[in-house]
Computed example of a mutant assay.
Amino acid sequence: MSTAKRIKDKVSSFDEGTTFKYDQLGIDNSEYGAATKAIERLISNDVVKRISKGLFYKPKKSLFGDLKPNEEQLLKPYLYKGDNRIAYITGLSLYNRMGLTTQVPKTVTLACNKKRINTEIDNLKVKSVKSYVDPTDDNIRFLEILDAIKDFKKIPDLDIDNAISQLQVRIRDLNDADRNKLITFALQYPPRVRALLGALLTDQEFNSAFPKLKNSLNPLSSYEFGSLSSSLPTAQNWNIV
């Protein structure tokens, strides 16, 4: 089967609204020339549309014309390499979704460990920061909590009582095994993250937080998070001021 026919069949298998890059077409490096011509033919036939260089989508048809992909689909090629997750959404977009801020960012921030991203996708600006842990579909819910703790003091319009409550709900929804995973990932984050996580966990009487987290901290260090005493009484036990 020719490269063009395989690409046409592959694109036909995509759901409408799906974005894709060349590396999602199952082609070898030697086939990129033929693949480029095949994609151009699909574009000219209105089967595929180009978002930016090397990024395409299969349009969703409607009575009002072709619909563009949503933000999640626009970002998907930068969140995954093949079937493997390589990045996740963090920063203000995440904290807005978590209910920690009302601000909607102009730039979406992705956390990734190996690849640096600085691009614009259909007027959506995207930048990247280094992740502390290699992201996977299974661990990003833990990394989201830890990122929120890491940036706690930087989140605009933060209501401390609400923020502590929101974090507590997310941690409370974890079972004991998942809480231990959260602790393990936290060990790769800065000390202030481990301290506040320890306070959040011990406030819920999850006392296995003490050994790993306490032993990872300098007992002479203190961590500034603002006035947490009324929202989180256990903060003082973790040298949080």
Rank of each mutant, 00 (worst) to 15 (best):
103 Q>M: 07
109 T>R: 08
225 F>S: 08
139 N>D: 10
53 K>A: 04
30 S>H: 05
77 P>A: 06
211 P>A: 15
46 D>C: 00
237 N>W: 07
158 L>M: 10
167 L>V: 09
31 E>D: 05
158 L>G: 15
99 G>D: 01
25 L>A: 02
176 D>I: 08
204 Q>T: 02
32 Y>F: 08
124 L>M: 06
151 D>R: 07
149 I>S: 01
92 L>E: 14
63 L>N: 11
221 S>G: 05
222 S>P: 11
229 S>F: 11
222 S>A: 14
13 S>A: 14
106 K>C: 00
210 F>H: 03
174 L>I: 03
67 L>A: 07
107 T>R: 10
19 T>L: 10
195 A>W: 05
178 D>N: 14
65 G>N: 12
98 M>D: 09
215 N>S: 13
109 T>F: 05
48 V>Q: 02
69 P>H: 12
169 V>F: 05
132 Y>N: 15
94 L>Q: 13
148 A>T: 04
109 T>H: 04
83 D>H: 11
79 L>M: 15
106 K>D: 12
210 F>V: 12
215 N>D: 14
147 D>I: 02
227 S>V: 14
102 T>A: 14
74 L>R: 11
6 R>M: 10
75 L>C: 13
161 D>H: 03
228 L>S: 06
44 S>T: 08
12 S>D: 13
156 P>Y: 10
206 F>A: 07
